[in-house]
Design a protein around this nucleic acid. Sequence first.
DNA 1: ATGGCTATATGGTATAGA
Length: 279
Amino acid sequence: MQIATWNVNSIRTRLDQVQAWLKDAQPDLLCLQETKVDDPLFPHEVFEAQGYQVHFHGQKAYNGVAIVSRQPLEDVRRGFTGELPEDAEALQLGEQKRVISALVNNIRIVNAYVPNGSALKSEKYPYKLEWLSCLNRYLCAQAKRDEPLCLVGDFNIALEARDIHHPELLTGGIMASELEREALLKVLGDRLHDVFRVFEPDANHWSWWDYRSGAWDRDQGWRIDHIYLCDELLSQARSCVIHKHLRGHEKPSDHAPVSVDLNWTPTDDDEEMSELFSN
DNA sequence: ATGGCTATATGGTATAGA
């Protein structure tokens, strides 16, 4: 089972490229961020014509997340409210459409678009920290159902020096500051693991290149798009790849897709039942 | 370097991204 994540920076602008990549890479599941479209305008027919179903949680102009899937999704949850119905802060933080979750092949997929934070002195920076704290509570509430967990998305945080093109210049600044790193590490706890690092220890592997300053031509990027797996799923991971070449296309997203290949056979409900009754 | 580039909502510029 192949699971992918991609910040597309507008699904409508990137629609042809997303269709082409689905056809080429054939992921079972694709989590999108920054769809930048209100739900009634989401171009779902195009995905359905390609043999995928898509569930989305978006808004006009900013943010927006979606899950594209070959297999039917169950228990789709939009925003934090599905897990934290009585949490006032969650309701407020949920006004920006940044998280969607679902069950597929018995895996709990959580697709997150973490706030950028803008700058350390911006009011958006404490918002980013609060949002991460809320994501932590959300995943703690989710954990009670004991489902195998896969957390993916655009985290807007590089956790280590090897995830940044010039760590000596950029460490401590936005996307690489101590507080936001601590907040993300708290979300991960000892439950979730960055599967990319299981296969690739070296620097110079980026998922985002700034549109400005010739960052792509200089290969000056950051690795801020991640796939996190629980132990059970991590033990079944065959590979994890950043599909860098898409950043080189005409009119690209500033992010490249990231995917993981899992040795994971969908558990058939009927088989589970027959096992149950054969005992 | 508060620059650089791109997308959206607009109908000349403003906001946001990262």
